[in-house]
């Protein structure tokens, strides 16, 4: 799958309270949560984000709580993928499980700024910065995780596992 969008770039250690503040966790629908996505560190994000846009960050994106509301809010805000130097581990699992694509690339983060237009090929991990005419490559997923992603996320993967168990 190919994605294309404008970059919204953030710093290191963007925590889940910044992605979706806990005061909104009485809701669990993505569309409702998206209205408050990033509001404590980037008020107005939801007004400027367009379908297909890309969130980019430095290290340890998504640190803090285990709330799946964080990737749900990002996905429902229309963001097509998140690119960072590294991700916090629970956020990483949650995003893969629900089907929000994440890419790790030091060089893409080092050579991209807010407002740049990127094209991402999820099959090959190629990240093309159209604004700066540069091409980068994301770190490939381990085989096990690639299988989980191609199965369509954890729920579909588990359905297949359980069907095989019964068979």
């Amino acid at each position: 799958m190919k994605l294309k969008g404008k970059v919204h770039k953030y710093g290191a250690n963007v925590d889940t309270d910044a992605i979706i503040p806990a005061r909104y966790l009485y809701m669990s629908e993505g569309a409702e949560l998206a209205q408050h996505c990033m509001e404590d560190i980037d008020d107005g994000f939801i007004k400027k984000v367009k379908p297909g846009d890309i969130i980019m960050a430095e290290t340890n994106f998504g640190c803090g709580s285990s709330r799946e509301h964080a990737p749900l809010a990002i996905e429902a805000a229309g963001v097509s993928c998140v690119i960072a130097r590294s991700f916090a581990r629970i956020f990483f699992r949650n995003a893969i499980n629900i089907g929000l694509p994440l890419l790790e690339s030091e060089e893409a983060v080092a050579n991209t700024e807010t407002g740049d237009i990127l094209e991402v090929d999820l099959a090959t991990g190629e990240i093309r910065n159209n604004t700066r005419k540069k091409v980068f490559h994301a770190k490939p997923y381990p085989d096990f995780m690639a299988g989980l992603i191609s199965a369509g996320g954890l729920i579909e993967y588990t359905k297949t596992r359980m069907a095989n168990r019964r068979a």
């Binding site: 799946e68 699992r93 381990p142 729920i155 359980m162």
Partner: peptide, 20 residues
């Protein structure tokens, strides 16, 4: 270890979980 809701949903059904 902490995980998200979907991991917990799958484990509630199967009794196991994938881990690195």
């Amino acid at each position: 270890t902490g995980m998200g809701s979907t991991d917990i949903a799958a484990a509630m059904a199967t009794g196991d979980i994938w881990m690195k």
